[in-house]
Nucleic acid binder design. Sequence first.
DNA 1: TACTTATTGTTCATTGACATAACAATCATG
DNA 2: CATGATTGTTATGTCAATGAACAATAAGTA
Lengths: 163, 163
Amino acid sequence: MNRKAQAAKAETPKQTDMLLRQFIGYNMKRAYLQVQEDMARTLEPLGLRVGTFSALAVIMGSPGISQTQLSEVLNIKRSGVVVVVDDLERAGAVERKPVRTDRRAYALHVTQEGSQLWKRAEAAVQAHEAALFTDLEAPEQRALQELLVRAARSAKHTREAGK
Amino acid sequence: MNRKAQAAKAETPKQTDMLLRQFIGYNMKRAYLQVQEDMARTLEPLGLRVGTFSALAVIMGSPGISQTQLSEVLNIKRSGVVVVVDDLERAGAVERKPVRTDRRAYALHVTQEGSQLWKRAEAAVQAHEAALFTDLEAPEQRALQELLVRAARSAKHTREAGK
DNA sequence: TACTTATTGTTCATTGACATAACAATCATG
DNA sequence: CATGATTGTTATGTCAATGAACAATAAGTA
């Protein structure tokens, strides 16, 4: 690094994004991107991406769920679910079982192997978040959780009302 | 909609993402996606996207900033800044002025027109967020802001330490 | 000075995570 | 049973961002 660059780095980092910090959306994006990137790195050794991790969690919690239902929970389209489930099935973590009452649909189930994978992944992400948010006390983390949930709900409300 | 689908919708929405709600990252993603989508819609009539809006804000707050510096503030690569600035320049909102002391670099400045565009955009997003978060009291919004900032900082710290 | 390394902005190809549109198979309903 | 809806799927496109290479220029060094 040359002198000019060093000097620039050394300067008190003038808050050049002052005009943006007033917005919740901006701060949310910054925080989200930080967390998301690390999450991906945490899951990679387990052969999971954030999307497949989430899908695995939902199928764990709702055995027999259909792909359409899964798409609603995850807020993605049915066509997007296909590749996610393909991925999990290829990894041997979930299987598509036929539904007796509807030959179009599949009932998604987590395999033994998938169940163990989930346990490892859950523990990994828990440990990861604990490390990531060491600067926040436990009650603060809970407060953040609750505010995020309520913010999402409020936003959803407003949008659906003003539709 | 047929009977089966109606019945499914009517059921108490079983929390099928329970296993995910424990994670800050998941709640952050949900909230972020809600907000981000609406933000884009708010800015669209003004000819701005979230990326160009942010860039405009930073250039407003730091006249003469270079593209490399801008890329650092916005956390994107220099090659990504090019298209953003191209966009803003095409819209007549900013201009690339030559730097006397360095013929490689540009000093970015907001034009008169861009300044007025910023005022309108800032007001629009302020109004939008006010409407979006009506379910949160003002102190709660401030708390969320602060927690988001600290969460991002904590995450950044941890990452840089464990690098 | 010469020359070697760094930095700036740029282009182009690629990626990832989605969405959209069309489709066959199957189901529901009047 | 005839018509319309729904399920999963494929193919295709989009959008934001990245990475690698590049010419022009600047800074550091022998």
